[in-house]
Write a protein that binds this DNA or RNA. Structure first.
Length: 849
RNA sequence: GGGCGCUUAGCUCAGUUGGCUAGAGCAUCUCGUUUACACCGAGAGGGUCGGGGGUUCGAAUCCCUCAGCGCCCACCA
């Protein structure tokens, strides 16, 4: 025992975590209603950021709360190989070593990244532990674990067999920097000011020209046609004619297509099937050749000598210069248009043609929309559901292929003799295989990360194999950032419905981004990144947790506040010092027996804690963490520390004091697990772990006694208020007429209001306190009284105003007839009290005259 | 072009079916070394809830409108 004067979190946290973990406290108990949540696999490629800390805090609060409530709770940890994200990090490492991906084979790269990730993973797991996550580490899943890969293959196979997977040559979003294609949602669209160039294409057999408009002149080398609207009178007569493609001697045809908007630009569009999704479609309709002029590394190919090898930007400049030289530019028009950018490198995305594996999304999305509309999943905040439905309604087929070595290989092989012949085969370690006498070459691409993490809930619970955690599927709570609504939540729902026929989770809680203290997005380049581990070491893990959840609502991006973390630390210290007081009072060997309310304060504190408990329950049951945290904070600080501990100095109800401490620790445990467990371990009457305790139960108390303590508080507050507003620093005596409440709580009132003495009197004198139900006076001198007169008059004026407002309300027949009865009743009571107060204030002023 | 969100105290933000005198943390001011805690205690000041209109007995909360800020989605060159 003998606790230090202040709580030093670093001294206790690692030991407490080890105590929990080694005791098996994080493992599901196998009894009770299941409650489960899975860690959104943090990327296994670096340090946790403060968003992870928030995520962990929210989930762990829910898990600890449910565990204490008797649920069979499990928090399943995970780690994500985070294919592309990790790849980018690793490629930078390679660069530092002066190497590139092309120096190694796929197998070599894979094993190098594996080692790299393995190292990072350990670090990440330690950080999750430091955050206090009560995760069941034995059930940890890594997205490259065998069972994950096997399930991913099975799912892929099922899609393949049922015709939902197809291999297609299509325009894909291509990152020339990382040399891989992206999914649609990985492209950042930005509205920009650009230029629309009007370029003349001379007619072949006639005199004249057709002027097309384009924002990408450098792609003209890939043009396969010029398109106009079939009904456009300006061009109707030219349809079928040929033009000469400038800077080349190629002839291309003028075609008609509904796609062209006659009102835009010149009404004539160059068609470049290999480098624009719309043109690709037009090209398909008209059977146009696809001439690729931008290579996968972002440089020009299949173009005249002078442009070959240039990157896109330079090619554009030189093309324009060449066109200018031939006087073919008719106009330059400023334009606002959207440009797609690589979300990772910030460079423009090139639409390029590539053969990729696609998953047909429409049937999957339709099922998802169905269950969402049926309300099978509850969203916090609720509005996100409709956003998701909207997304699903407009979904496109999903490009599953990534041209990076780090990931789950796509288990497909292509016949070397027939490039349309693809077969499914899991033997991805072989470069070639022979099946039925035919030789097949391995697909070198890997899966989009989200294809594996999209199956997370049923993989982590081993639902498909009916593993030991299968009872936890569908999971109870999926908690993640709002930014993952489309790319993760949507996919989990679709894939889960497809594979299991069930929704993957019942509740979805989406938290916003944690911004810096000035509401700016945190980024390395701005240098405003807050490292959660630094917060933990400076203020403690609990403090960080409390600070993160305070005043934070779902779906809303909100600033991080060190002040709130400090407030959290102070709260932990408060709990610590409440314990020190109790320790002092109870001694080293205290063993409590049944607690029982005796004093008014006893009844009151039981009521307060019961109230707080119910508020916390209501809030946590609907994931209103901030509200729960606030209720806890005030129950502990205001009620327990400021009133009950103070009252305990004048009384000895040790059993109840111990109960109050226990109850406080239990209520606080989900929010501040480390400090509460640390304290619990010091209490001589416990030899258990707090994490395994049950949620507190209230004990009998009496409402009337509790309310009477409220009266005592009013007397104390009024005496304090009046005394501090009086001149000088005098301590005053309190006089009162026959009043059993004051009588019985004399000592308490005296100490709390810092009075010299509290005495019964026959004759009132001094300053009458503005109390509705008690006659009490501060024993002050005439002179002080005189100086206080102004205060009294102000008090009287405001009370008159309040009375007028109350009377106005009560005189309104609509109010008395339509408002709920208890509100009307309350107004009446208030009016009476205010009126009594006025009487007192008046008589007080009368004396002063 | 659609969709969503935000605007409440000096700062950062809560405020769930409309209902006590609109709250919190920090900051500010005044007192205070009462042995649990200065990572403290007591008290105080500070908001016409972005503007305007409407519904209602009653609006920060619901509806309309205007203004400012932010986000997401969308293959018009």
């Amino acid at each position: 025992m003998n606790l230090a004067k202040a709580y030093e979190p670093n001294q206790y946290e690692p030991n407490i975590y080890a105590l929990w973990e080694t005791s098996g406290a994080f493992k599901p108990k196998g009894v009770g209603e299941p409650f489960s949540t899975v860690m959104p696999p943090p990327n296994a490629n670096g340090n946790l950021h403060v968003g992870h800390a928030l995520d962990t805090a929210l989930k762990d609060i829910s898990v600890r709360y449910k565990r204490m409530k008797g649920f069979d709770a499990v928090y399943i940890p995970g780690a994500d190989h985070a294919g592309f994200e990790t790849w980018v990090v690793y490629e930078k490492e390679l660069q530092k070593q002066g190497k590139s991906r092309f120096d190694f084979t796929r197998e070599q790269l894979y094993s190098q990244v594996w080692d790299f990730v393995d190292q990072q993973r350990g670090n990440m797991e330690l950080q999750v532990r430091a955050l206090g996550a009560s995760a069941s580490w034995d059930d940890m899943v890594f997205t490259l674990d065998n069972k994950v890969v096997e399930t991913v293959y099975d799912t892929f196979k099922k899609f393949w067999d049922e015709g939902l997977i197809y291999r297609g040559e299509r325009i894909v979003n291509y990152s020339t920097k990382y040399q891989t294609s992206y999914a649609d949602i990985e492209v950042d669209h930005k509205v920009e000011k650009g230029t629309l160039w009007h370029i003349a294409y001379p007619l072949v057999d006639k005199i004249g020209e057709v002027v097309i408009a384009t924002t990408r002149p450098e792609t003209l080398f890939g043009d396969a046609a010029v398109a106009v609207h079939p009904e456009d009178e300006r061009y109707k007569h030219l349809i079928g004619n040929k033009v000469i493609l400038p800077l080349t001697n190629r002839e291309i045809t003028i075609i008609a297509d509904e796609y062209v908007d006659p009102a835009f630009g010149t009404g004539a569009v160059k068609i470049t099937p290999a480098h624009d999704p719309n043109d690709f479609e037009v090209g398909k309709r008209h059977d146009l050749p696809r001439l690729q002029v931008i290579d996968f590394d972002g440089t020009m190919i299949n173009v005249p000598q002078q442009f070959a090898g240039l990157d896109v930007e330079h090619a554009r400049k030189q093309t324009l210069a060449a066109l200018q030289a031939q006087e073919l530019i008719r106009k330059e028009e400023p334009i606002e248009h959207t440009v797609g950018y690589d979300y990772k490198s910030g460079l423009p995305i090139q639409p390029l043609i590539k053969e990729q594996w696609f998953l047909r999304m429409t049937p999957l999305a339709a099922k998802a929309i169905e269950v969402l509309e049926a309300g099978e999943i509850t969203f916090y905040p609720a509005g996100r559901k409709n956003i998701l439905i909207q997304y699903l309604k407009g979904i496109h087929d999903w490009n599953l292929s990534r041209q990076i070595p780090w990931g789950i290989p796509i288990p497909a092989f292509q016949n070397v003799a027939d490039d349309t012949d693809w077969i499914f085969n899991k033997n991805v370690d072989e470069k070639t295989i022979v099946v039925d006498g035919k030789t097949y070459r391995r697909e070198e691409d890997t899966f989009d990360t989200w294809f594996s993490s999209g199956q997370w809930p049923y993989i982590t619970t081993d639902y498909l194999d009916n593993g030991p955690l299968a009872r936890f599927f569908p999971t109870s709570l999926m908690e993640t950032g709002t930014d993952l609504l489309d790319r993760w939540i949507a996919r989990m729902i679709m894939l889960s419905l497809y594979q299991t026929g069930k929704v993957p989770f019942k509740d979805v809680y989406l938290h916003g981004m944690v911004l810096d203290e000035h509401s700016q997005k945190m980024s390395k380049s701005k240098g405003n990144v807050i490292n959660p581990m630094e917060m933990v070491s400076e203020y403690g893990s609990d403090a960080l947790r409390l600070g993160l959840i305070a005043s934070r609502s779902p779906g809303q991006n909100q600033a991080f506040s060190v002040d709130r973390v400090i407030a959290g630390r102070n709260f932990c210290n408060k709990l610590w010092n409440i314990t020190r007081f109790a320790e002092h009072k109870l001694g080293d060997n205290f063993q409590p027996s049944t607690p029982e309310a005796r004093s008014l304060a006893d009844h009151w504190i039981i009521a307060e804690l019961d109230n707080a408990k119910q508020t916390i329950e209501r809030a946590l049951d609907s994931y209103r963490y901030a509200e729960a945290g606030e209720a806890l904070y005030h129950a502990i600080w205001d009620s327990v520390a400021d009133w009950y501990i103070e009252a305990s100095k004048d009384q000895d109800n040790l059993d109840l004091l111990a109960w109050v401490l226990d109850t406080s620790l239990k209520l606080a445990h989900p929010f501040a697990p480390f400090v509460t467990e640390t304290i619990w371990q010091t209490l001589p009457w416990h030899n258990t772990l707090l994490i395994n305790e049950t949620w507190p139960e209230t004990i009998p108390y009496n409402d009337i006694s509790a309310a009477e303590f409220g009266q005592v508080q009013k007397i104390v507050s009024e005496a304090r208020f009046v005394a501090t507003s009086l001149p000088g620093n005098d301590r005053y005596g309190l006089l009162y007429f026959e009043d059993s409440l004051i009588e019985e709580n004399k000592e308490l009132i005296k100490r709390l209001a810092k009075l010299n003495e509290v005495t019964q009197t026959e004759q009132a004198k001094g300053l009458r306190l503005a109390l509705a139900n008690h006659d009490a006076w501060l024993d002050v001198s005439e002179k002080t009284l005189e100086e206080h007169k102004g205060n009294l008059e102000m008090r009287l004026a405001t009370t008159h105003q309040e009375i007028a407002a109350l009377e106005g309300r009560l005189n309104n027949k609509n109010y008395t007839s339509k408002a709920p009865a208890h509100l009307v009743e309350e107004s009446r009571k208030q009016l009476e009290e205010k009126q009594a107060l006025v009487e007192r204030l008046l008589s007080e002023l009368e004396i002063l005259k």
